[in-house]
Amino acid sequence: MSFEPITIITSKVVRLQVDNIDTDRIIPARFLKSVDSSGFGENLFHDWRYQPDGSPNPEFVLNKPEGKGQILLTGKNFGCGSSREHAAWALYQYGFRVIISSGFADIFRTNALNNGLLPLEVDPDTLARLMEIHQADPFAIWTVDLPSQLLTANCQLPTADCRLPTAFEINPFRKQCLITGSDVIDYLAGLKPQIIEFEANHLI
């Protein structure tokens, strides 16, 4: 799926403070029946977001005033479970570009990177601090500067303490892909001469 490049994202943050959010939570299997890669955003977090009668659940963060933003702040081991890339598509199509957590499941991390979604990993102590900052000022404007690999927050409330600058790590190749909006498929397809040479000596 093609995606918009990421450079600097400046946005409110949506806080979903739950650990181990699995991809069935992000998008239940019954919404994976499309043969296209669009239209998944409306079913993001479906069974938390909507009541059984289909109306929005007012208790769920996406249905609150602070529920719109490009950055999702969430608990550890985000994206565990099923490999469904539809989870990354749903997050992206809802409008998220950055997910901040203290850990991502391996397959989800790769799916996110392949779809213009930055999995921004921080250590558990930093995550706890970020949660506190958000709790103190849910409408603070945060900035994710991918080229400089810096996360900062700008509080709206004078009483809140938003001192932060947090550097984050990312694989340089993946960073470049996100900044340029390119993916790995063309790179691999371009390696065919080496792959064919490899196959000649590979007997399985």
């Binding site: 799926m1 890669s37 479970g81 099923s82 490999s83 469904r84 890339e85 990354a88 397959i107 790769t110 799916n111 392949n114 779809n115 993916d183 790995v184 498929i185 691999l188 397809a189 390696l191 065919k192 792959i195 196959e199």
Partner: peptide
């Protein structure tokens, strides 16, 4: 499919991938 790990029982490196990676394997076997 994430449960591709099943095949590891035979002494293989077997793992689940997303759809972009399915496309990579279709395009390059890598």
């Amino acid at each position: 499919d994430s449960h591709t790990s099943t095949h590891g029982a035979f002494g293989t490196i077997a793992f689940g991938i997303g759809t972009s990676e399915v496309e990579m394997v279709m395009a390059s076997q890598c």
